[in-house]
Design a protein around this nucleic acid. Structure first.
Length: 491
RNA sequence: CGGGGUAUAGCGUAGUCCGGUUAGCGCGCCUGCUUUGGGAGCAGGAGGUCGUAAGUUCGAAUCUUACUACCCCGACCA
């Protein structure tokens, strides 16, 4: 399965594509730009969902579900919003098919044209705010803290599995608040939730900050984001949290009576992460031997491979394996005993390695004799022989160790790939030779950002939260600047 | 959406330029025996309307046209 697998060095983007397909995470479908997420990939997504959903609930949010279709007229109510999404909307115009006159297949029934065309949601702000108008009358109805897990469609020109697909899965939180400060606090809180999830579950260090006006969400007052660095030195936006001000409340006429009996527009936020995180996970940790998954998100955390010649030996091994499995499962660790006789151990070693299973145990006749087990860890590919005594505890500890190691490794890589640039020459050299994050001064104008993007393909990934004041001059124009911002070439 | 490329068995491919036996090979799959501490060996076997649709021709995987999908490079974007 892993034969003919490209290395990162040879062709990073082919490596990524091969890995996603050959490890059974996803594949392209019969529909252009849309992927099929396969069971192994979906199992990882389910673990992500579970962890995030628990964090949303713990911060007081509830799940709900809004329609896939949005009346076209809703879209035009918020000017910046329609401007941002109009070019990539799928539109439903008819509701019926009929047999083709020539008898071959079916055609759209032109008589069944919709009176008002429907947009397939690229995001749900409009339908949600149209709904919230009826839910909110008083300050007592606030805050309104709702999340939905859904699919959305953005008609992308060029797609890549998980990183950019026409249809993708995500969650979108939509909250309403009585005050500006409370809405901003919510926006920042959810950004921290995302950062915590990325770091503690995905073992992925992220920068936190706000987007420049050019990169801001269509309809937002401020867009906060977490940004991660991939192994090829390109940045990837891993999550966004938007302070929407009163833009959507005004567009959809959502008002509430405050304690002084005055009518006010509510303050809004929205925030989301998508199946794009799957792409980030793959690109952050995996190597030329295949996937490397952090234990907390691995569908299977431990696999036990028996090594035997005779059936009687397998029986002996199975007894030991079952006792290890009981121990691990009692600790909440997922484990599989692969006693499939149709594949040899060597084949299984490679297979589980390719699929990124964090820990592999091998038990053979020698181990039975000595009361030992061979333990192999996926992140470093190291093997050691351990006594069976207290094995559950040792493996639990090892899994925690792997989780930490992956994070540290990614953090070390990011730190080594982050550079300051103080001249235009230096800026270009870093981008061309090393990639990574470049900390540089910018004069704050959208025009300069656009110019830099056109000349270098690098964009401002974020302006760090609580950025240290540091006087300097813009890397491109030489105009004065108050602080450094983070540039990178990005996915 | 513009430029370039690709499409032959589950996967990878030969054959296409220059039309002509039964479309070949490797991996995988099925059966049997031997094997099993890093992708096993031998023997036998199954599996193809050559991406789709038209056209040219006595004859099309091969030539022509259109369409579809995927890959690379741009523009756009989570």
């Amino acid at each position: 399965m892993a034969k003919n697998f490209s290395s990162r060095e040879e062709d990073y983007s082919k490596w990524y594509n091969d890995l996603v397909i050959k490890a059974g995470l996803a594949e392209n479908s019969a529909v252009r730009g849309c992927m099929v997420i396969k069971p192994y990939g979906y199992a990882i997504w389910e673990k992500m969902q579970r962890a995030l959903d628990d964090m949303f609930k713990a911060t007081g949010h509830q799940n709900a579900y809004f329609p896939l279709f949005i009346p076209k007229s809703f879209f035009s109510k918020e000017a910046a919003h329609v401007e941002g999404f109009a070019k990539e909307c799928a539109v439903v115009t008819h509701y019926r098919l009929k047999n083709s006159p020539d008898g071959k297949g079916v055609v759209v029934d032109e008589e069944a044209r919709l009176e008002e065309e429907l947009i397939i949601r690229p995001t749900s702000e409009t339908i949600i705010w149209d709904t919230y108008r009826n839910w909110i009358q008083s300050y007592r109805d606030l805050p309104l803290l709702v999340n939905q897990w859904a699919n959305v469609v953005r008609w992308e020109m060029r797609t890549r599995l998980f990183l950019r697909t026409a249809e993708f899965l995500w969650q979108e939180g939509h909250t309403a608040h009585a005050t500006r400060d409370e809405a901003i606090a919510e926006t920042e809180q959810m950004l921290r939730v995302y950062a915590t999830f990325a770091e503690q579950w995905m073992a992925l260090p992220v920068l936190q900050g706000i987007k420049s006006p050019n990169e801001r969400f269509a309809g937002a007052v401020e867009t906060y984001c977490i940004e991660a660095l991939m192994q090829d030195g390109k940045a990837l936006q891993a999550g966004t949290s938007h302070f929407l001000g009163q833009n959507f409340a005004r567009a959809f006429d959502v008002k509430f009576l405050n304690k002084s009996n005055e009518l006010e527009h509510v303050w809004a936020t929205s925030w989301g992460v998508s199946t794009r995180l799957m792409g980030a996970l793959v690109m952050a940790h995996s190597d030329d031997n295949g996937l490397v998954l952090p234990p907390k998100l691995a569908p299977l955390q431990v696999v036990i491979v028996p090594i035997y010649k005779k059936v009687e030996q397998l029986d002996e091994i199975a007894v030991v394996a079952r006792s290890i499995m009981d121990d691990l499962r009692a600790r909440g660790i997922s484990v599989k005993f692969d006693d499939d006789d149709s594949q040899k151990p060597g084949w299984k070693f490679n297979e589980y390695e390719f699929k990124g299973v964090p820990v592999r145990l091998a038990i053979g006749p020698r181990d039975i004799e000595n009361g030992t087990v061979e333990v192999a860890r996926r992140d470093t590919l190291e093997k050691e022989v351990l006594q069976l005594t207290d094995i559950g505890h040792k493996i639990q500890h090892l899994l925690e160790n792997i989780q930490d190691n992956l994070y540290q490794k990614a953090l070390t890589f990011r730190d080594a790939s982050t550079h300051k640039a103080d001249s235009w020459q230096e800026f270009n050299d870093i981008l061309d030779q090393r990639g990574g994050f470049v900390l540089a001064h910018w004069d704050g104008s959208p025009e300069t950002e656009q110019l830099i993007k056109e000349e270098t393909k690098a964009t401002i990934r974020l302006i760090p939260l609580n950025a240290r004041e540091e006087k300097g001059v813009c890397i491109r124009t030489g105009k004065p600047s108050e602080r450094r911002v983070v540039f990178a070439r990005a996915y």
